[in-house]
Design a protein around this nucleic acid. Structure first.
Length: 907
RNA sequence: GGACCCUUAGCUCAGUUGGUUAGAGCGUUUCCUUGACAUGGAAAAGGUCACUGGUUCGAGUCCAGUAGGGUCCACCA
């Protein structure tokens, strides 16, 4: 066996094991009808994506779950893949084209798509390589892409199916239009931002009443040429007599527009009069519909003013047009006032420009299975972690709106609809849509293609990713499903994602699963997953979201180079409590690295301490353990090991990963390294205790590596192999199995918890003695001379642990005797220890120290006495609490008396 | 306007059903290179648990309210 080096160097170890796992096929999810499946589908990163800290957190958690599932003996499948990301990808390729001074229209649809595909081949999907550096144990042979042929068939098949069921329709409606990407967006893709703007107060002159005006307030004067009316509230006394009159439009081609009454107008906002521009505002559009007013669209698709805006404005970009419009109004005396104003403006999430409400023909989806989707979560068939997100989910479903699923892009799934050549698409009715002579909807398309024209639009990316949990498992093709193990792996077990895509993705997947999978079967067989774990959002030290534009996100690959993948994983998990946002601190990643080094060196110590026996199974190690020889420390460390095992079990059940990591950290560092390894040093000197001690170390290290493996896969595999904990040719990640505490008991392990409890007191005593030395200027390394004044029972404990105590307290000798007057001392659970040395300087310092301690004890004592003197406490508190208080009182009284005696003896 | 979350040590955060003297990591101070580890060890300082009131024998924890910070949803020009 090679010797373990002095410090852990992650780089080569990570490369070595990742390749070994991959080559041995350890990542493959296999069907085993006799076993239980554990399935995770990756939230597919965009094909344009690069690894961010958010991905690190998200995918580390998935890897933790999947590795833990393997160790529990489940058939684990982590299914990876990528999203074609319509707008994002098309934008990237268009940007490339722009550098060549070209536009996608110069290439034409077909050539442009070829270009996108070749971009994907060359540069797309880097993120999947990066995930491997993180240690992701996904089944890469199953990698899916939402534009793969079979996946595309699933997407288009679903469109056809929903169309036939009447869930999909085409309609001319107000949509969120992105003037940068030139496409419609769904409501979910629009984010509202408060924007500082100007509120213009504009007056419209009444026709036939020279010098009389009606005033409106608007933030968008450039749309005045699109005004078709002024609306007031029907009950507004200020305007009642003006209803039905006409005013002159102050901008654009001259026109007279009517003053109308509509109760949608808020009397108390602004002037109480509202300009109606149906083409550029959703509310205005609705009012326009009610009053049969035709919309006048004064903008082009890319956000410029068109000819309908009049010659002064035509051709201007919309914001330049706004400025110009204000100037023109001012010149004409129509601008009464302008004031600073802050309002909410919808922005395109992708392009980060203000969207335009725009009237266009689009394809819409009436969501299927909305009610069942609520039931699935409300009744706990799908559990959200943390649970509070279910409220957000349900609220959205309560208020759900039809989904605009068409996009005016080229990169994506082209809608499988063909219109009869020559059909007037601008005036298509619902009846036309359902007439197979006019509109053809199918996967294969019409037989006589020459007589038909295919729809130009593609589907929203989310209208493909909502099928992810089952389309990635071969659905709907039966042969592909069988090959992928659909029946075994679906429903998936856990989805790990961010709460920001609850609406975009999570809710839609639930509805899709319920609608399409195993129709007619019970709900719990159709849902796409049983658990949804929502991660927090990673923020920088100032609490800002990490984003590319701010440049405040560290490159995870740099962090891996610096701290190792395990260090990064351990660090990020340790600061990611369930459901809370995470403030990133690089120091915590460094802490992860340091922990790995600690683990490494503890194993190194084991290797240096004595011969490695056959460690290749739990049974082999247990066979070397001799419980009758156990001392308190042996009982204590095994007790803590089992408690930690149970705690980690609990954490996995509750999805509390950071708590698991903290439990493991505390156990390993404090209980094992700081105490057990240190006491081992004297036990290893003694031939009667050595073998047992080494076996216990093996047992604890083995269990620690098993529990830690999901979090830090590389170093644990390396150490597992170095210490020989698995049979030759096996892997920790694939072949090892977690043993439950009951299996340890089965193997003959009996823990004496009373003995284990003594160790807590021994530790406290050692701390007190060390502090005594430190306070009196004795270096911890100096071998000091102690005299202990103790009763028989207490001294027996000290004597039984003498060698260890000498080492731990840094003592040359520990003898029983009377405490010398004038010697510094401390009152412990096992007698009063005094340090034999020349009292330096003023004995008053020692008296002051004792007085301070006495004061603290007295205060605590008084509190306990008061509690016990309280009639209500004595009669109502549970017996265990009462007993505890009584014992505490006795202990404190004894300690107080002993301290008083020391004080009297001091100087 | 509605919903949810947060406020605990200098900093970032744990604190599971209410129960002795509220914890961790980092940072700070002092000491230590003793044969696993200085990526380390020992010790110490540091908190009226945002505020006010209530329930209770007992509240960081439960309830109500207040203040501050954050997130999501909502068509107010």
């Amino acid at each position: 066996m090679p010797a373990i080096t002095k410090s852990y160097e992650p780089r080569d170890v990570e490369k070595k094991w990742y390749a070994a796992w991959r080559d041995a096929g350890c990542f493959a999810g296999r069907v085993n009808p006799a076993g239980a499946a554990y399935t995770i589908v990756i939230p597919p990163p965009n094909v344009t994506g690069v690894l961010t800290m958010g991905h690190v957190l998200n995918n580390t958690i998935q890897d933790i779950l999947i590795r833990r599932a393997r160790l529990e003996g489940r058939e684990a499948l982590w299914l990876p893949g990528m999203d074609h990301a319509g707008i994002a990808t098309q934008t990237v390729v268009e940007r490339e084209l722009r550098k060549e001074k070209k536009h996608r229209r110069d290439l034409g649809r077909e050539k442009f798509l070829e270009r996108v595909w070749s971009w994907r081949e060359e540069k797309g999907g880097i993120i999947l390589q990066q995930l491997q550096a993180l240690g992701a144990s996904a089944d890469w042979n199953r990698t899916q892409f939402t534009m793969d042929p079979h996946y595309s068939r699933a997407v288009l098949g679903v469109f056809v199916d929903l169309f036939r069921k009447g869930h999909i329709y085409r309609g001319k409606r107000m949509v969120n239009w992105c003037p940068a990407s030139l496409t419609a967006l769904s409501d979910e893709e629009v984010i509202m931002k408060p924007v500082k703007s100007v509120l213009y107060q504009v007056r419209y002159e009444l026709v036939g009443d020279h010098g009389r005006f009606i005033e409106v307030k608007t933030t968008r004067p450039e749309t005045i040429p699109g005004d078709v009316a002024i609306a007031v509230h029907p009950d507004d006394p200020r305007y009642k007599q003006l209803i039905g009159r006409k005013v002159r439009r102050p901008l654009g081609p001259p026109a007279e527009i009517r003053i109308i009454a509509d109760s949608a107008v808020d009397k108390d906002f602004g002037s109480g009069a509202l300009k109606i521009t149906p083409a550029h505002d959703k509310v205005d559009f609705e009012i326009g519909q009610r009053h049969k007013l035709p919309p006048v669209d004064v903008l082009t698709a890319d956000g410029h003013l068109n000819d309908l805006a009049g010659p002064e404005l035509a051709g201007l970009e919309r914001f330049a047009g706004r400025k110009k419009a204000a100037e023109l109004l001012k010149e004409r005396g129509a601008l009464v006032k302008e004031e600073g104003y802050e309002n909410n403006v919808g922005y395109s999430e992708r392009a980060d420009v203000p969207i335009e409400p725009r009237l266009t023909w689009q394809w819409w989806l009436r969501y299927p299975k909305v009610e069942e989707a609520k039931i699935a979560v409300r009744d706990g068939h799908i559990r959200f972690h943390p649970d509070r997100w279910s409220k957000v989910y349900l609220h959205w479903l309560e208020n759900i709106q039809d989904w605009c699923i068409s996009r005016q892009l080229w990169w994506g799934h082209r809608i499988p609809v063909w219109y009869a050549r020559g059909l007037d698409r601008e005036h298509l009715t619902e009846a036309d849509l359902r007439d197979p002579a006019k509109v053809h909807v199918s996967l294969a398309g019409p037989a006589d293609k020459e007589n038909w024209v295919q729809e130009d639009d593609v589907l929203d990316t989310w209208a493909s990713s909502w099928l992810w949990p089952f389309a990635t498992l071969g659905w709907p093709d039966r042969a592909a499903m069988d090959q992928a193990g659909f029946e075994f792996f679906y429903p998936t077990t856990t989805l790990v994602t961010g709460p920001d895509i609850i609406f975009f993705w999570v809710a839609r997947m639930i509805m899709a699963g319920l609608e399409f999978v195993r129709p007619g079967e019970p709900l719990e067989r159709r849902i796409p997953f049983r658990h949804v774990y929502f991660t927090g959002i990673i923020r920088d030290a100032q609490g800002r979201k990490m984003s590319k534009s701010l440049g405040n996100s560290p490159d995870p690959l740099d962090l891996i180079a610096k701290y190792g993948a395990d260090g990064l994983r351990f660090g990020i998990i340790s600061i990611a409590p369930q459901g809370q946002d995470i403030r990133f601190q690089e120091e915590r990643i460094e802490g992860g690295k340091n922990f790995c080094n600690k683990l490494w060196n503890a194993c190194r110590f084991r290797q240096m301490s004595g011969e490695m026996a056959d460690n290749s199974s739990l049974a082999m190690i247990l066979a070397r353990i001799a419980p009758p020889r156990f001392d308190a420390d042996d009982h204590a460390i095994l007790d803590r090991m089992l408690a930690t095992t149970r705690e980690v079990d609990r954490c996995f059940e509750e999805f509390e990963f950071s708590a698991a990591v903290q439990a493991l950290y505390g156990f390993f560092w404090n209980d094992f390294c700081d105490w057990y390894v240190e006491v081992s040093k004297s036990k290893l000197q003694d031939p009667t205790t050595k073998a047992n001690c080494l076996a216990i170390q093996d047992l604890v290290l083995r269990q620690t590596l098993l529990l830690l493996h999901p979090f830090t896969p590389f170093i644990t595999e390396e150490l597992w192999q170095l210490l020989g904990y698995g049979a030759a040719g096996t892997f920790l990640m694939r072949d090892a199995r977690l043993e439950s505490p009951s299996q340890f008991a089965h193997g003959g392990l009996r823990i004496d918890t009373a003995a284990a409890a003594v160790v807590g007191q021994l530790k406290a005593m050692v701390s007190q003695v060390r502090a005594l030395k430190a306070e009196h200027g004795e270096a911890s390394s100096k071998a000091s001379v102690f005299v202990v004044e103790a009763g028989e029972a207490h001294w027996a404990v000290v004597e039984a642990n003498l060698a260890k105590l000498q080492r731990m307290a840094g003592a040359a000798t520990i003898t029983r005797g009377q405490t010398a007057p004038n010697a510094p001392g401390t009152v412990t659970a096992f007698g009063t220890w005094s340090l034999v040395k020349q009292m330096q300087g003023d004995p008053a310092a020692e008296r002051a120290r004792l007085a301070k301690e006495i004061e603290a004890v007295a205060k605590h004592l008084a509190g306990t006495q008061a509690r016990l003197a309280n009639e209500a406490f004595v009669s109502k508190a549970p017996p265990a609490v009462l007993e505890g208080a009584k014992k505490q009182l006795a202990d404190l009284q004894a300690k107080h008396a002993e301290l008083q005696r020391l004080l009297a003896a001091a100087g």
